[in-house]
Computed example of a mutant assay.
Amino acid sequence: MRMIPTLALAAMMALPALPQATEQATYALTIRGISAGTLRLSGRVEGGRYSANGTLQSGGLVGILRTLRYDAATQGRVSGDRFTPDTYSERADNNGRKRQGTMEYRAGVPQVKAYDPPRRADEDDVNPATQGGTVDPLTALFATLRDVPPGQECGQSQRIFDGRRATEVALSRPSRQGDSVTCAGEYRRVAGYSAREMAEKRVFPFTLRYDPAPNGMMRVTRVTTDTPYGQARLTRR
């Protein structure tokens, strides 16, 4: 099931200017064409601030074999195309192993406030004080999967910190086919991983597809990546 959060993180990229409106989206997760779970997002941008909630839950055949649920909430400030989180919280249930955590931000620098149950420090952990300017996973995911104006589908990168690990997601090489735009992307492990994990794989290529939405914007309709278990795909319902 580790490919589920990896695929969700692979969708976290460019942060365009956003209209003042509440948005909701549901994505179906499949692995090798088999139903594996659901990603649900909702959020709002208004008065220079934003808030978002997200749930990632296993389902289908994978859900029968193993239960995974991840709930997160975030809020902060937005100016143009720049998002600055104020708070981020998460709750996870991985086959009965439950945890929750909270981060707060001071001058754009994340502060890890609480984890329950307490986590043992690891020599590979990234020092939060070095992660100024990063965003939490949900902030990046929410902003990336929102509708964007035509021409703003690709071209930016994001630095992400989840309280322990640092990653980066970058988009490039937009390709237009008819009304659709496909972006080539990379999800990169930066720090916080063991030497074995870094040697195993550092870069995870993926593609992101936009299609025209009824409101005249471009909408993410599909995210595709390869995993050790076969091709995984997020498809908007």
Rank of each mutant, 00 (worst) to 15 (best):
M1N: 08
I4D: 00
T6Q: 10
L7P: 07
A8C: 10
A8S: 08
A8E: 06
A10R: 02
A10E: 00
M12F: 04
M12A: 14
M13G: 06
P16I: 12
P19L: 09
Q20W: 02
Q20F: 10
E23D: 08
Q24T: 14
T26G: 07
T26H: 04
A28I: 10
A28K: 07
T30I: 12
T30H: 12
I34K: 12
I34Q: 09
G37K: 10
T38G: 00
L39N: 01
S42F: 15
S42D: 15
G43E: 05
V45E: 11
V45S: 05
G47D: 15
G47E: 08
R49A: 10
Y50W: 13
Q57W: 03
S58I: 06
G60M: 10
V62N: 00
R66P: 01
D71Y: 10
T74W: 06
Q75L: 04
G76M: 11
R77M: 12
V78K: 09
V78G: 11
S79H: 05
G80N: 10
G80S: 11
R82E: 14
F83R: 00
P85M: 09
S89L: 09
A92I: 14
N95R: 07
R99D: 09
Q100S: 15
Q100L: 06
G101Y: 03
T102C: 01
M103L: 14
M103D: 02
E104M: 11
Y105G: 06
G108M: 14
V109I: 15
P110T: 05
K113V: 12
D116K: 13
P117L: 11
P118V: 13
R120C: 05
R120S: 01
D125T: 10
D125M: 09
D125Y: 10
D125N: 12
V126A: 14
V126W: 02
T130L: 12
G132P: 04
T134G: 04
D136E: 14
D136A: 13
P137R: 02
L138A: 01
T139D: 08
A140F: 07
L141G: 10
F142C: 01
F142V: 02
L145A: 00
L145G: 00
V148H: 01
P149V: 13
P149Y: 04
P150H: 03
E153F: 11
E153A: 07
C154E: 02
Q156Y: 08
Q158C: 09
R159N: 13
I160L: 12
G163V: 07
G163I: 00
R164N: 00
R165S: 12
A166N: 06
T167A: 10
V169Q: 05
L171I: 05
L171A: 04
R173H: 04
R173Q: 14
P174N: 05
Q177R: 03
Q177P: 01
V181F: 02
V181T: 13
V181L: 11
T182S: 09
T182L: 02
A184M: 03
E186S: 09
G192F: 09
S194K: 05
M198S: 07
A199K: 15
K201S: 00
R202S: 06
V203W: 03
V203G: 14
V203N: 15
T207E: 06
L208G: 05
R209D: 06
A213P: 01
P214Y: 08
G216L: 07
M218A: 03
R219W: 03
V223W: 02
T224N: 03
T227W: 00
P228R: 09
Y229N: 12
G230V: 04
A232F: 06
R233C: 01
T235E: 15
T235R: 15
R236V: 03
R237K: 13
